[in-house]
Nucleic acid binder design. Sequence first.
DNA 1: TTGTACGCGTTATCAC
DNA 2: GTGATAACGCGTACAA
Lengths: 344, 344
Amino acid sequence: MSERKPSTRPTIDDVASYAGVSIATVSRVINQTAPVATKTVERVQAAIENLNYQPQAAARTLAGRKTRTIGLLLPQIGGYFFFPMLQGIESGAHVDGYNLLIHSALSNPDPDQGEMPLALGEHNTDGLIVFAHSLSEKELRRLYDFGLPLVLLHQSPPEGLAIPNVTFENKDGARRIVEHLIEVHGYREIAILTGPEEHEDSYWREMGYLEALNAHGLVFNSALKLRGKFSPEIARLAVAGLLGTGVPLDAIFAADDESASGAMMALREAGLRIPEDVAVVGFDDTLLASHLTPPLTTVHAPIEQAGRVAISQLVRLINGEKTESVTLLPTELVIRKSCGCCSK
Amino acid sequence: MSERKPSTRPTIDDVASYAGVSIATVSRVINQTAPVATKTVERVQAAIENLNYQPQAAARTLAGRKTRTIGLLLPQIGGYFFFPMLQGIESGAHVDGYNLLIHSALSNPDPDQGEMPLALGEHNTDGLIVFAHSLSEKELRRLYDFGLPLVLLHQSPPEGLAIPNVTFENKDGARRIVEHLIEVHGYREIAILTGPEEHEDSYWREMGYLEALNAHGLVFNSALKLRGKFSPEIARLAVAGLLGTGVPLDAIFAADDESASGAMMALREAGLRIPEDVAVVGFDDTLLASHLTPPLTTVHAPIEQAGRVAISQLVRLINGEKTESVTLLPTELVIRKSCGCCSK
DNA sequence: TTGTACGCGTTATCAC
DNA sequence: GTGATAACGCGTACAA
């Protein structure tokens, strides 16, 4: 298959002469930036239609100093968490009339060491949504100082930077699900599978776990704190290791659904039944949760909504309107079977 | 939280005067488009560094007539299939130095009826990757006739349009997994859960199924053909319906992993064991497959690779190089437990 | 090896 | 309501 030669596209001048008006008028009907006579509008629109004209984005940006584009920076693409988030962000961006430019930080080497400057920034975006720790603090500061509108998803801003951030009521959700394990099922030996060290959501989920323990007079047993890193494989190994020690165990609170699935694997491999021998609960309520066997009791996190809110905050910022410095989205307990409820 | 005022960014002129050269020279060192004296290069680079200069994307595009951006058009964002694909596309695009603009067709109303023109197109991209049927044939034709480089993912081009397309060896993979059911396990009553009607991958998977049946002297029983639409819920209902009829059933070949998970649910709800009573196999080998209980025997499809190949084809097209009209990526049988193998 | 000057296609600011 | 025309920031002949 060989190349075809691109034809030349019509410009605003072509439209203007076709319609017998000036380019200024054409611009006016396109952008509705000033009143134009109805007849003229019709002629111009017909011209646009007939010539199949579409304004050149780059020229508009250059002249109008707006890219109409929002950038999204992610640590990496993948995981169950990712697509509802992207869904929210994409639809939100589109509703507000913005294009979405995506980059994963992995393919975006650290600008502190390497040469390559950030592919997303003030030169091609009106604002950025930064997920968790996809940007070094230094780079974040640079962009902030520059004045680029920024919103942080699932990360609070570095000291002194007034960047809006949106996340979940993690502590509250975690506390509630752990209390469910304690109050409804009477479990007392409850392990926790934490996420990555630096992950703030994980931190607050752990705090919620501790709070629930304390509220019910249970003492925290550090042997029951396992690092799951939001990864099924790592969680599986961690749980297998715990089971090897023979420590008594009633239930496992995994800080996300993926590590919960790893925990389930480990339990099953050890010949333990879920939830009869050990209960397992998660956090996030991703697609995975309902596909597991038994279906996972978890905390529903409004992931898609978070994406949408992040966009709306960013758009407000771009428009120079006031924004919330922190948005905490409520979570909700979702009872399925892995905790011991509803089992037959 | 209130607004901050954006500072003004340095231009190529600032860099030029800072370095004591002309803007042409600055442009040359940035784009390495002509030899420049080493000393000069150093001075310019220092200037760029000190001024924190980054070229304005819009201006480069306007002057150089290249957006350095690739557009990705999707029917909707979601499903397990989606991550690896996006991963491949994103990384591929980045490796080749392109930005990635994403749009889902859902938020992109049909331009044939509505007003809104396609948000992605010749005005803001150098080329487009179009997934399955996210674009009407008319719009596809328009873009093609215009000369915009186009690559189709999991869809063959409309009559007469020479657009490269990349997909899997669907028929072959389907045939192999169904033959596995027949030859290794001796199943004869094998149902199929197809995907959406118009989906080509699904069509070829069905063909592979039929081929396997024929090759082993089994006659196709139309009662065993169920529409799963690549959806767990729809598949679940379809299978439940089938079970209600009492038709004999040894195994189910689901045309994708998600419908396989739905089939499993239905079977379990009917009190049937997998694979002892009815075996289930899928297609794609997404994350889901290994998370199911029992782990799903399926056909591994190189989803991420398909994304990467699509990008490379598109880039070749953009560069005016020759491309493959069709790329068929090989699939591979992945034996887990849901077919009856490895069970203990 | 380097500099000058024009053009890329819009928006925005004036006048009329 | 409408029309000239000056930016916008950069690439790139063409000259030197």
